[in-house]
Design a protein around this nucleic acid. Structure first.
Lengths: 241, 241
DNA sequence: CGATTCATTGATCGAGATCAAAATTGGTGG
DNA sequence: CCACCAATTTTGATCTCGATCAATGAATCG
């Protein structure tokens, strides 16, 4: 299924079922990866464009000394790597965080599909613009926020992205990322992530239940993280629809 | 003049003068900004696509408490904001670091120009892919490198980008960024930037002359920064040409 | 030359890293 | 259902890199 994508793209542009038929019929086919599996290997040839149908994935780069920086998290509805349309090799890896279902298209066929439909092309352009916006936000998070604020900000961003993708959620955010992954995402040590999460719990801003985070006090979290509610062009998107 | 752009785009795709004529003739017109002037205001409408002809600019976001994070530096040959093609409002500001000459095109005319020439469109796509790669590198720099390594890495990146844009340079890198700007770029305090620069000087890795940096020991800098020489798809670009 | 902006240096403080051990969680098989 | 093993998380103690505050020193420019 490509329904999360449908929800995402539909939020930016007025698309109907007919616009999607080239994707369904010709370009995309399903694939599945186990938890922890490599979806794209660093320096491997980029052959496909992917859309996440279910599960989470991370995009990361490695340093020579073995340290890792996670660049972004991919949620259902997110597509990657659109750069495959033009770059030959991956400068980063993609790994499944949970069991992962994707739809994937060989890049030539993907290009054919979006050429056949201008509105679809525009919608995919939007996802690329949004991806860039997400990267910029990650830069600000790493450069100018404290450990606790980074965590709070990431949680709020993920929740917003899930909402935009039509994955309801209310105040409950699934959290399959381990402490190590959060650390590699936020530029912190796993130990400090653990301590900062405890502090957020003590402050009654969040609660942790098994594999999920409860956002107990969004206003408090947003104040701590200086989370910008206009983030992700929500208003500009609406105007385009 | 749009020659730095010509050098940049020419590095990715086989373009000749004729490919550029739609840009020269119709779309782009020159504009100039004083040092420190705002080129794009945060939250302002995005009306133009820009190409830097001469000078440096920074792209930044502000936090509510007044702190600033510089997201990227724009050098001659870089274009911004391609997102204007699709996003209505800027989620960040752009400011001239030096006196700045640009070529700019109203977005409708820019879109017309690249529609008229597929090779040109591909070349601009490349610049967008590269911009994303630069943002990812900035994320790794902020997340997983020490202060000194961040500085060394940034200098090596800027030098590489200048080389790709045909702005020779050898081991001399102009450095119009103030300590405050470097701090806002690298997620450090200005004081610490100053101290770290002194440390790099003491280690004979760099020297500072007036408004420029001399890269005395590139191998040493690359080792300290774990600078990846394959960075910026240099090989993949060559293949495409 | 003052005046303003920018850079360096010194002293102190704190957020987060590191090392190491203990406690939980979760999955597996008896 | 329980016992066990591996992976993950939490907690404690100590150390360090980089922040902050404050003063001094260049440059640059009318």
């Amino acid at each position: 299924m490509i329904d999360p994508l449908y929800a995402r793209l539909g939020a930016y542009a007025a698309l109907d079922e007919a616009d999607f038929s080239p994707l369904r019929d010709a370009a995309f086919e399903p694939a599945a990866y186990d938890r922890g599996a490599a979806v794209i290997e660093i320096a491997a040839a980029l052959t496909h464009v992917f859309v996440v149908a279910q599960g989470w994935a991370i995009r990361y780069r490695l340093l020579e000394d073995g340290r890792r920086q996670i660049v972004n998290v991919m949620l259902p509805g997110d597509c990657f790597d659109l750069q495959a349309m033009i770059a030959a090799k991956a400068d980063h890896g993609v790994e499944a965080v949970t069991a992962l279902d994707v739809m994937r298209a060989p890049k030539a066929r993907f290009i054919g599909a979006i050429r056949a439909n201008g509105r679809l092309a525009t919608a995919f352009w939007w996802t690329a613009v949004q991806e860039e916006s997400i990267l910029r936000e990650q830069i600000v998070r790493l450069g100018r926020r404290s450990g606790r604020a980074r965590i709070a900000h990431l949680f709020l961003e993920l929740q917003r992205r899930r909402t935009l993708a039509g994955l309801a959620g209310g105040d409950l955010l699934p959290m399959p990322l381990t402490r190590d992954m959060l650390a590699d995402m936020l530029g912190l040590s796993p130990v400090h992530v653990s301590r900062s999460l405890s502090a957020l719990k003590r402050a009654k801003l969040i609660a942790l239940h098994g594999g999920g985070v409860v956002l107990l006090d969004r206003r408090g979290l947003a104040a701590l993280a200086q989370f910008d509610p206009a983030y992700l062009h929500a208003d500009a998107m609406a105007r385009l629809a």
